[in-house]
Design a protein around this nucleic acid. Structure first.
Length: 269
DNA sequence: GATCAGGACACCA
DNA sequence: TGGTGTCCTGAT
């Protein structure tokens, strides 16, 4: 078992914050499905115990090389401070682009348990079976493998099945597209993503933030819209007004602030 | 059964 | 640029 010291990191809050879905808590370890590898990790105070992943990849996955103490200094209002007080160590996960894309196409008009179920079934139907610690897992299917429409329906993805199928086909036909999108700036990559059916503004923003390192993106869904309206504006507002407020008020580290506020508001209920 | 949801799209004005 | 109906599924 490997061990690494961490600062400002909380494994549980990070995984449970609705940014990443394919993980399982078994015997105190989180087993994480990251493309074609399954690794496990457990937190003991300021240490992570981990196995089946290199230190470099672990640090990369959990963004452990980012100095969150500095970021917390930019938290500029009482709700952010309350949030960081409660959920200190919640970090952005640096996800794989493809796994992230599939996850957030599934997320439209859905909820976390259902997205998990969709992804588990997609892995089961299109991924490979792996036995790890005598437990059966399925890897996440690689790009181009979602070629059976009926199985996508069986994975309970509903009307999103055709979106997944079409996007997968498009990526087979244009193998350079992913690399191209990865190298564009935020607005350009968002524009490219939104050319796909099934990816609108919010889903594109999530993909940009969670897998393309565009950390200044603040995705606006009904939860974040509601929280800006309820906590800050004290009135209903259009998406445009909300967007304007967010940039003017939060200024920097928008993606990370969004994550803290989102987590905070979801646990108020 | 009916309604609603962490959204997108097509169509309309 | 903004408003409405429809799309699968699962929970209530």
């Amino acid at each position: 078992m490997n061990k690494i010291k961490v600062d400002n990191f909380n494994l549980k809050e990070t995984l449970d914050s609705g940014q990443f879905f394919l993980y399982y808590l078994i015997n105190d370890f989180y087993y994480i499905v990251h493309l074609d590898i399954i690794f496990k990790v457990k937190q003991e105070d300021d240490y992570l115990l981990y196995d089946n992943i290199s230190e470099k990849d672990l640090v990369n996955f959990f963004n452990l090389d980012i100095d969150y103490a500095k970021i917390y200094q930019t938290f500029n209002d009482k709700y952010l401070l309350e949030a960081v007080n409660k959920y200190k160590g919640l970090r952005m996960i640096r996800q794989d682009f493809w796994q992230c894309l599939v996850s957030f196409v599934c997320s439209s008009c859905s909820n976390i348990p259902k997205i998990k179920k969709n992804l588990e079934l997609i892995s089961k139907f299109f991924g490979n079976k792996v036995i790890y610690d005598e437990i059966e897992f399925y890897t996440f299917p690689t790009v181009g493998n979602l070629i059976d429409f009926d199985k996508l329906i069986e994975a309970k993805t509903g009307y999103r099945a055709k979106y997944l199928y079409q996007i997968n086909q498009a990526l087979i036909e244009n193998s350079e597209l992913i690399n191209k999108i990865k190298n564009l700036d935020y607005l350009e990559s968002k524009k490219e993503l939104m050319k796909f059916s099934g990816i609108g503004s919010k889903v594109a923003d999530c993909i940009c933030l969670f897998s393309l390192d565009h950390l200044e993106v603040f995705p606006i869904d009904v939860w974040t819209k509601r929280l800006i309206e309820d906590l800050y504006l004290k009135k209903e507002a259009s998406l445009k007004e909300i967007d304007f407020f967010i940039k003017a008020h939060f200024k920097i580290n928008l993606g990370i602030k969004q994550q803290y506020l989102y987590h905070y508001i979801r646990h108020l209920k």
